[in-house]
Design a protein around this nucleic acid. Sequence first.
DNA 1: AAATGGTTAACTGATAACAATTAACCAATT
DNA 2: AATTGGTTAATTGTTATCAGTTAACCATTT
Lengths: 237, 237
Amino acid sequence: MLSDIHQDTLAAPLNRTLSDHIAERLRQAILTKQLAPGQRIVERDLAEAMQTSRGPVRDALKILENEGLVIHSAHRGTIVAQLTIDDVEEIYSVREALELLALRYTIKRATDDQIRELGRIVDRMAEIVQREYTQNEATDLDLEFHRALVQMSGHKRVQALWEELSSQTRLLLLTHRLKHPMDLKDIGVDYHRRVVEAVSDRDTERALEELHKHLRASFDGIVGGVTDTQTPADEGI
Amino acid sequence: MLSDIHQDTLAAPLNRTLSDHIAERLRQAILTKQLAPGQRIVERDLAEAMQTSRGPVRDALKILENEGLVIHSAHRGTIVAQLTIDDVEEIYSVREALELLALRYTIKRATDDQIRELGRIVDRMAEIVQREYTQNEATDLDLEFHRALVQMSGHKRVQALWEELSSQTRLLLLTHRLKHPMDLKDIGVDYHRRVVEAVSDRDTERALEELHKHLRASFDGIVGGVTDTQTPADEGI
DNA sequence: AAATGGTTAACTGATAACAATTAACCAATT
DNA sequence: AATTGGTTAATTGTTATCAGTTAACCATTT
């Protein structure tokens, strides 16, 4: 019988190409600061380290370049991107524009079931607040909420652009929160809850307003009081 | 003397790599419908046609994939993208979100000189309206205005994302306008003029409103009355 | 006739070798 | 001392070749 075959066996056609693997490993290395901002990435060395050839490595670097995690210039090579305070503002402003647009579509298109799913993500945030949690967990759950919101819009281009930005977002959130641990109650639960309620009521204006307030608060929490906009984000925030 | 050297000699460091050349030629081929939507692109054949090897061709295809002009899936190859009415709505909604965001920054940051430059683009539109002009010229000038607006924002990420979208925008504008030629007065001059005036007055709310009205009118001009959202844009609009 | 299974041709994914460019270094010059 | 010019090592851009995957085709079976 078909149903005897485990779901995963069907769902995983092992379609991922070698470039995707390498891109994922590199992405993790950058997010965990094993590769420092500004550090040079040499294709041959990386290929050797990954036990592969330069072709897939070049493809992987192209992927990361699109995500803004590395910067490439012709004949000169590739370096790990450095985020300045200006970049943080850029990332947040674009994120807000994309998420507000997505929200309009989500309110129009999401089923009640999907919106309940959104509520369950917030419930999980409320749960882990009660016990021990790492900033890593908190950030993942935070992003999971926003990703779900964008996914439910059904807007393919917004989804794609948001995913491109998400790596940079995660990088700057982690960078900041590891230095200045935050109470998840402040950054997440309440704001998110209010967004879900407005979406559930299909109240577009209120939902847009709540999401705007949340993102603004999150942004202020990161750059609060910083004036030197040229300093790399590692030092400056 | 330095000034004896012609400007172009300095400005063109011949930095463009082969991949960029191929991407540009392919882009033109797609925009001029020499490559039809849905048509398969075979790497080896393209390399031969371009008198080069598959490496640069693969790089070029990655660039076009980012711009949404082609679609690639692993082991199966690359095809020229087909735009449906749904895609047109997606492109316009994202464009609007990005351009409205850019506009806020442009009003804050652009110098009076830059704003006058914007006015001169509108003047050129007004001029060619008086004489013969092709839909191609009209579309280029239209996009040039919006590009300038986005460039003046100084917002690197919005600039990059807008450029990614611009190829698709140009494709759908040309596709439509070649079938239904439009009077440039309707699509451009007046709307653009009002945006420039609002920017010149540094009146953010009015500028946002005018740009919104312009984009909405442009969108309606394309999809007006179409209900079958799945039909490829070539047939449907 | 429709569905299944095996076979093959076409094509992409990956590797390895070669060519072109850059940047660092040092000597010579102003 | 700063600038220019040539030289070289390191690294990327490009080409050429091999390996793995897909999809079309045809024979076979139900």
